[in-house]
Amino acid sequence: MKKIKRNRGITDLKSRYGYLFTTHWIIGIVIFFALPLVQSIIYSFSKADVVAGGIKITFMGLDNYKQILFEDPNYEKWLKGSITSYLYSLPIIILLSMTLALILNQKFKGRLFFRALYFLPVIISTGAVINLIFKTTGSDMSDVGVSDALSANMISVDDIIKLFNINGAVAKYITSTISKIFDLVWSCGIQIVLFLAGLQSVPSSFFEASKIEGATKWEEFWFITFPMLSRVTLLVTVFTMVELITSERTTLIKNVYSMMRTGNYDESSAMMWFYFLICGGIMGIIVFLYNRFLMKRWE
């Protein structure tokens, strides 16, 4: 009897310590996260005027949303462009960073050098500087400029596609991937780091067992590595989605920024919320499908 009581005492104490360690964080969440989040929802439903000593809010209902969806000529265009580029970059970034992490996880000569090289985008690619560099060096191939010099040296992609007799939609996907290759590779930095960290948690005894059973490399990947990475893959997917959605290189975000700088808070909030709701919906569907069809299979 006594023992049970004492045990509960320790759990009580421990749970109190749990609260103790997170007090500052939860206060911060309320002041710096929850409050502004609610305020930004309110802005999107009202007319917000900047006045001396703050902001004056008049409730307008759905007016802002009506305005951006039905009257603004640009919003739909921005929205479509941003969402297409997001849906299209996501699988490439994940596959590419997973492949690179798998390669960099192997033991070979020069591994340290290549790792140092592949982590370089981590320190540079998150900032404004990369936009400048890409624009000027022509790595952003949507601009025709210096890139002429580079692409002149390359074999024409169209010729290769003709050679393999690939059909239209796939060919288009391949050509646009190649024209955005700099952007895509440079977005893989942190994902490679996360995948590499995840790969370390796969116990090597699994591979030894599979080797004894005579598994091929492919079976090893598909039945051991990939399932063991499933949670990291989910983390990387969510992280990449957030990065892509909020990237300053997206047309929508770029334009909304310039609207915010001029003091237009209500419409820009509505634009962002609508955009993030759609992106969040897509994200939810992807995560749900992933859990349903991939995670379930392994559990």
């Binding site: 969510v238 920024y257 808070y265």
Partner: peptide, 11 residues
């Protein structure tokens, strides 16, 4: 993690 910084930046 999910909510982008810029959404809450103005308020």
């Amino acid at each position: 993690i999910l909510v982008p910084e810029m959404l809450i930046l103005i308020p």
